[in-house]
Structure formats: structure tokens, C-alpha cells
């Protein structure tokens, strides 16, 4: 707990997401247990943890798709969940939620319209988002003909359509080959540098090295929060993986 307290000072920047004592239960199972977290503006924040640790549940609470049983979630200063907040962030779900019968462009058109984009502006944004993920040449193809990596990129493009100030990405690089993973990370870092706040989840340890700060999550609790360097130093470890095992409660070793 002292580790988390020490990190509270890191949020000198205005908070984008502020979670206090958040608890979420499904039936008798407690998936998130009094979790407190603050993500500052312009940060690239990674939630690192094994599958089933509560990462996706946490993401759903931050975005307002789900509601906490206890505690409070604030996003960009607004108490969540709130309908109008859905236009303030771009979201990419863990599974590629795309319409396979439609072309990439039709998928982009559909989601752009849901975000209230229309006319010339909509066409511009579709072209721009497709260019970022390198799908311009494949816009007219039905998604059913896409490879796994192309679907992932299209999902990312959808998250970027309305130029959100915050990106919430659930496992953006899962199932993607190393080359594509690197190019996606280059994009993420570029957006971070241009001022976009990014919250993402991952269970790939070496990806965490790219984040400004990492939250280690295990069994519904944040076991440590800090920059990759800080966490390694604190654990006296060489790698994030070692730090994760040492700081995350060595109950599995």
C-alpha cells in the first residue's frame, strides 16, 4: 500500500481518470477490490497483469460501459458512467468488434456516424484514420477477407475517428505479429507526444517498458504503480517481468 501512496504525488498534471476505492463484484466473486488509481493528462499508462486479473473490468468501469458496485470513477472531471462522455474517448475492445459483411470503409462510416461526424469532415477523418494504420489500399475490401492484423488495425482506426483526447485500448497488440506490434507502438508513442492521453492494457511484459507509468494489477488489486524504471529499482530487478513477480506478491512463485 505504501507504494501506491508514494505514487499519488505523480499526478501533478490534471487527472484524466480518477478512481477511488473502486469495487466491482460479479455474483459472489470480487473482480476489483477497492482499487484507487489516477492517470494524468498526456500520460501513456499501461495496466499490466495476467488474464483474469481484472484489467478489462477496470477498462469498462473507466469508460462507463460498466458501473462500479462501490467507490467512484471520474473521467475528465465527470462522474462516470455518463452518456455524453462516450464521445470524449476513443475505445478499442479486446475482440475485434467489426461487421464482417461490410467493407472496411463501411465499418468506418458506421462508427463515424455514431460519433456524429458527417459530410466532408467524415470523409476526411476516415481517410486520415485509415492512413495512420496503413489501410488506405484496403478500404473497399470486406472485413471478412482481412487478416487478424488488419482487423486489429481497423479497430484502432475506428478508435481514432473522432480525434479523441483520450484513447482507451484493451490489449491493442494481442495476436499481432512482432513487426506490426512495433509499428503500432510507434504510433502510440507519436500520439502520446502530440498530447493524447492513452490508457491501455497488456499482458506482454516487454511492451510495458514503453509506457510512462505502469500499474501492476493482480487479483483485482493494484499491487504497484510507477514508471518502469522506478518499479525495477524498487524491486531491485533487471526486467519488468522480475519486478512484476516481486512486487505483485510472490504468492505464485
Amino acid at each position: 500500500m505504501s507504494l501506491i501512496a508514494a505514487e499519488a504525488g505523480n499526478g501533478q498534471r490534471a487527472a484524466v481518470a480518477e478512481l477511488r476505492e473502486v469495487t466491482r463484484r460479479f455474483g459472489r466473486r470480487t473482480v476489483l477490490d477497492r482499487l484507487t488509481l489516477r492517470v494524468g493528462r498526456g500520460e501513456l499508462f499501461g495496466l499490466l497483469g495476467p488474464s483474469g486479473s481484472g484489467k478489462t473490468t477496470l477498462i469498462k468501469l473507466i469508460t462507463g460501459i460498466d458501473k462500479a458496485d462501490g467507490g467512484t470513477v471520474e473521467l475528465l472531471g465527470e462522474r462516470m458512467p455518463k452518456l455524453s462522455m462516450f464521445r470524449r474517448f476513443g475505445y478499442m475492445a479486446q475482440s475485434d468488434a467489426l461487421y464482417n459483411e461490410l467493407t472496411a470503409k463501411e465499418n468506418l462510416l458506421f462508427f463515424a456516424s455514431l460519433y456524429g461526424l458527417k459530410g466532408v469532415k467524415r470523409s476526411e477523418r476516415i481517410q486520415a484514420a485509415a492512413a495512420v494504420v496503413d489501410l488506405l489500399d484496403h478500404l473497399e475490401k470486406p472485413v471478412a477477407a482481412f487478416s487478424g492484423g488488419m482487423k486489429r488495425r481497423l479497430s484502432l482506426a475506428i478508435a481514432l475517428l473522432h480525434e479523441p483526447e483520450l484513447l482507451v485500448l484493451d490489449e491493442p497488440t494481442v495476436g499481432i505479429d512482432p513487426v506490426l506490434r512495433r509499428s503500432i507502438w510507434q504510433e502510440l508513442l507519436r500520439w502520446r507526444d502530440s498530447g493524447t492521453t492513452i490508457i491501455l492494457t497488456t499482458h506482454v511484459m516487454d511492451e510495458a517498458e514503453h509506457c510512462d507509468r505502469i500499474g501492476l494489477i493482480r487479483d483485482g488489486r493494484l499491487t504497484a504503480v510507477g514508471s518502469p524504471g522506478e518499479l525495477k529499482a524498487r524491486a531491485g530487478a533487471q526486467t519488468i517481468e522480475e519486478a512484476f513477480i516481486l512486487l505483485g506478491g510472490g504468492d505464485r512463485t
Binding site: 452518456l83 455524453s84 468488434a97 455514431l114 456524429g116
Partner: peptide, 14 residues
Amino acid sequence: TTGTLERLLATPIR
């Protein structure tokens, strides 16, 4: 079941 409903509900749609 394909997850598009959840994705849809992560947009400002009522």
C-alpha cells in the same frame, strides 16, 4: 456474441 454490441455501446448511442 461477436462483441459488436459492446463496441456499439462504447459510442454515444442511446
